[in-house]
Each structure stands twice: as structure tokens, then as C-alpha cells.
Amino acid sequence: MKIVKIREDNCIFCHLCEVACIVEHSQSKDIIKAFKREEKPIARCSVEFNYPVSLSVMCRHCDDAPCVEACQNGSMHRDDRGYVVVDADTCVGCWMCIMACPYGVIKRDTRRESWGLSTKCDFCPDREIPACVEACPNEALTLEEI
């Protein structure tokens, strides 16, 4: 299984991973339209900063995922590819997954109509290389086999 490796030594705090994640999860998948015309999705990765350290964090797709354990109705589950994803239609927004995640990478999106509730990295199901990895200008995120 492949995972996004975080190389904090190379992160330059440009936030382009977040931008790319937003575009990838938008309706149009067009950077200008996603930001200007749509109600835009939340980025699944977050860039943290504490000078001089910066790094982007997103779901680690843990083997023993505590969020999956914690989910009361199985919305948070492992998909065919082996990645931990949430079923937007069944998620009730109890936020137990958020409480359980040791990395703090699950976010709340209360815009039920458009986006479902619990929001997290879905490892870009429509792409071979995740959007954040492709967008990172300094190879601070790389796709690696584990």
C-alpha cells in the first residue's frame, strides 16, 4: 500500500498542498472556479508552522485506525484500496472519529447538503498520484510504498 510520506525538512510552508486538495475535491476541479465560483471544500491536509518547522499533516491511514473503531455506525471504514474513508451519506456528525484520531487530521464540515460531515483525506480516489503530492513544489510530500 502506498502512503504520503511527510518530509518536514523540505516543507516551505506554501500551503499549495491544501490548495491542490481543495481543487481535487471541488466540483469543477478547476482552481479558479473552485475558489471563485463554488462553495469550496475543506482541505484534508493542514500545514502546521512553528518557526522554523513547517509540515503538512494528513490522515496516516493507520493499520489499527482508532477512528474506524470509534465510529458508531461504520461510516468511517476501510475501502477496497485499503484506505480509511468516511461515507458522507451515513455520517451523523457525532465527531467520535475526531476525538479518536491521534493526529488530529479529521475535520468538521457542517455543510451537510454539499459536503457530508466528517471530512478527511480520502487518498484521492480519482488519481494515481494524490493531488497534494503532485502539487508540492519541494517534494516535502512523496508517495511511498510501506
Binding site: I12, F13, C14, H15, L16, E18, V19, I31, I32, F35, K36
Partner: peptide, 13 residues
Amino acid sequence: DYRCIRCKACVEQ
């Protein structure tokens, strides 16, 4: 200004 999506990457860089 139309193309600018306020990502602020330029500000940081």
C-alpha cells in the same frame, strides 16, 4: 486580481 485565489503562497514566499 481575478486569477488570485488568495492562497497567500506569494505572501509567505
